[in-house]
Design a protein around this nucleic acid. Structure first.
Lengths: 233, 233
DNA sequence: AGAAATTTGTTCGTATGTATA
DNA sequence: TTATACATACGAACAAATTTC
């Protein structure tokens, strides 16, 4: 027997697939849903709460429930629990990020708008002229994020955001440390230059080479740091 | 003001981070949680239902709520709604899959066990000797999935599974069509051969080349099909 | 094997805060 | 401002499944 609170979830799924519900649409009131589906309001609410936390709907006190579609937070939540429960770590996140950025580069060189290419160059200038760690981290993030955004693939974009969110929440100093440790390192600047130039010029080979160098350097640096730290203990 | 059902979610998150809750552990009874957190049992249940649907816990009628950690279903659910609500399509899924397989190849060549390499060769033999569409689809899937599994990155594995699930549920004939349309095409066989050999030999360049060919061919084939279909209308 | 206790599943009734016309 | 519609939240009760003794 289908659990009661699943009825509301399947109902919404059916309505969306049938085209009867689109983003922005308001759902029927909880009481009506309860009547239609033959379950209690509490069961309806349990189902709606799940949909809310999945990002499918947004509930507004006193107003109603509306079809939303912001899944980034949901992915962040899910992956956060994966991070906490499944021995995920910085290396796994970085591997995943590299996969997404690599493919984003392939797609971006063909799809990026002039505005995006221009912005990419701005970010790069600000990165290399920055005189504070915060600023460097900010524009480093901006460059990588813009790259992924230009892929125009919402699956990939949402997942990338989720990975970034986890890093910011649980290992916030890692990025800064690495960037600081390499600020005088010409190699990382060089890697970023290739990423940006590849993106701007539509040269995916150059861009991918930049990414390759970038992720290799931060891995080398992190491994060195870990050995160094272990050696101190 | 924090919504009531969020209290239980944050409570579980805290307990997990503190190490007090691990996979398999049983949560306190709903009534006790309600008392501890100062909310009603209904609110506790709304929060638990969300955690359940996120894959964090599993509820068993008459027994209790237990920390679980199966996030693949959740990711499938979330991405299914993305598929339905955000104009996602086969091409986006394929782009994402390629990203994951590409990185999986990089990691697998170093990490794959002998058993996995052996299995990979078995699957390949069965793929090229298969005489039914079903069988070909089955071993095609097995090869690609084994590759991703060998990455040992649960983020990537769970996401890959989710993408596969969506394809199976909503565009189940697509894979079969492509494979059938190319069964006599030596190029696809050749691509798979390189993927398998690269994986088995630990040669990531060869493996990546195989993936490149593979994804290029299925895109070419699909684009041709679409033009063909449009021409018929 | 069976009965009692425990726990989740589900429902109803009620009160309250919020948004909208 | 008032009235109405709606979500939020609580408490009590019983059903159903499981565990325990």
């Amino acid at each position: 027997m289908e659990k009661s609170y699943m009825k509301i979830i399947n109902y919404v799924k059916r309505e969306i697939l049938a085209g009867a519900l689109k983003p922005g649409d308001q759902l029927l009131p909880e009481r009506e849903l309860a009547e239609i589906l033959g379950v209690s309001r509490n069961s309806v609410r349990e189902g709606l709460r799940t949909l809310d936390n999945m990002g499918v709907i947004k509930s507004f006190h006193g107003s109603g429930n509306y079809i939303a579609g912001n899944f980034e937070e949901t992915l962040t939540e899910v992956m956060t629990f994966m991070y906490m429960l499944k021995d995920m770590d910085y290396d796994r996140i970085t591997e995943f990020r590299y996969a997404l950025e690599w493919q984003a580069m392939n797609l971006a060189v063909r799809q990026a708008t002039d505005q995006q290419r221009q912005k990419m160059q701005e970010y790069y200038k600000k990165l290399i002229t920055a005189d504070r760690e915060e600023t460097r981290v900010k524009y480093d993030k901006a460059i990588h994020y813009l790259l992924v955004q230009a892929s125009k693939n919402d699956y990939m974009i949402s997942n990338y955001k989720a990975l970034n969110n986890i890093m910011d929440r649980y290992i916030p100093t890692m990025r800064g440390k690495i960037i600081e440790g390499m600020k005088s390192d010409e190699r990382l600047i060089n890697a970023h230059r290739r990423i940006v130039e590849g993106f701007v010029e539509g040269n995916y080979l150059k861009g991918r080479q930049g990414l390759n160098l970038h992720f290799r350097y931060i891995k080398e640096y992190k491994d060195y740091e870990e050995v160094h730290k272990n050696g101190m203990e």
